[in-house]
Design a protein around this nucleic acid. Structure first.
Lengths: 163, 163
DNA sequence: CAAAGTTTGAAACATTATAACATTTGCGGA
DNA sequence: TCCGCAAATGTTATAATGTTTCAAACTTTG
């Protein structure tokens, strides 16, 4: 077992991208959803690192591609990818990150490094269950849970330089 | 013990406001911080209900007051109030709500009704502890936790009309 | 009072997100 | 095939949220 989770170690990141795209194609095929070129390209761009990407960053990268697009193009692709659980929105950053557990039906917990921006997604079913139970104890019917932890990733602790 | 938490029941809300303002004055006095008229007024506006208020909503209300202000006025007051723990920012709504546990040093959990907007703040120390422990297990040093649950409050369940 | 620091005013600008409507594309049935 | 519908994309404009910058006013302290 590795000392640190994958996003925190050097790794062949292209493999992450390839896997994510293959998973996405499979998930969309099963759901009869159309993973169009734009949607796939947006997903690929988001997966280019383990750092969340803002909608306008994506827009700019699409521009460098040759596609020249407007905001709705990106937001529509993002909505699609969110809908099929292929990406997550990080509310505290207004940004989007690839889902590390696509197809698993889960609620993610996100560890967000405030120095380098890297995000690690955890699934903690028992904890999520406890949160939902607490909500129901207040007669509240829970629907979505946003759980984001900001702090320092292993790489950035003891460091004083950025990114 | 009441069946439902306070924000969900009819109550003398003016008492909430008065208490919040008194607490704020006391906290600021102890911290040698200046709760200026603008800051106090912003806090009062935020406390006018148990629903989060956006920065531009606050700006508009300040305008109706006679104060005509610009966005930085509001954001500066909000920064101050956040710094002293008198309000919380709801990341999933880009909005602000009065802190129900000012001065207690805590991490809040927010139950946000997606129909009426009402927010209930809970403190769940054990759960927060568990989250931080999980983060540290990944060699991540946690700093801030954003925990927001969207769903239906007791009043809005079974309801099909809004607010 | 005078200097230094804090708070507020004001204008411009930057970033994030949506609305509205036209056009194109993919796809199933006549 | 090709017609027609629905889904997807293009395009323009605008709304909503948040920041930078610099100047003026106020507070505190020596």
């Amino acid at each position: 077992m590795p000392e640190h989770a994958l996003p925190y170690r050097p790794h062949n990141h292209q493999a992450c991208v390839t896997q994510a795209l293959a998973d996405a194609r499979s998930i969309c095929r099963q759901a009869n959803a159309r993973l169009t070129p734009i949607r796939e390209r947006v997903l690929e761009l988001i997966w280019q690192s383990h750092k969340p990407l803002g909608a306008y960053d994506i827009l700019a990268k699409l521009g460098s591609d040759g596609h020249s697009s407007a905001p709705p193009t990106v937001y529509r692709a993002l909505d699609f990818l969110l809908q099929y659980g292929l990406i997550h929105r990080i509310a505290s950053l207004n940004a989007f990150v690839g889902c590390a557990h696509a197809g698993e039906r889960h609620r993610g917990t996100f560890l967000i490094c405030r120095t380098c921006g890297t995000v690690l997604e955890l699934t903690m079913p028992d904890l999520m269950q406890a949160i939902e139970t607490a909500a129901r104890t207040e007669a509240f019917q829970p629907d979505d849970v946003t759980l984001e932890v900001a702090g320092l990733c292993p790489q950035c602790q003891g460091d004083h330089h950025h990114d």
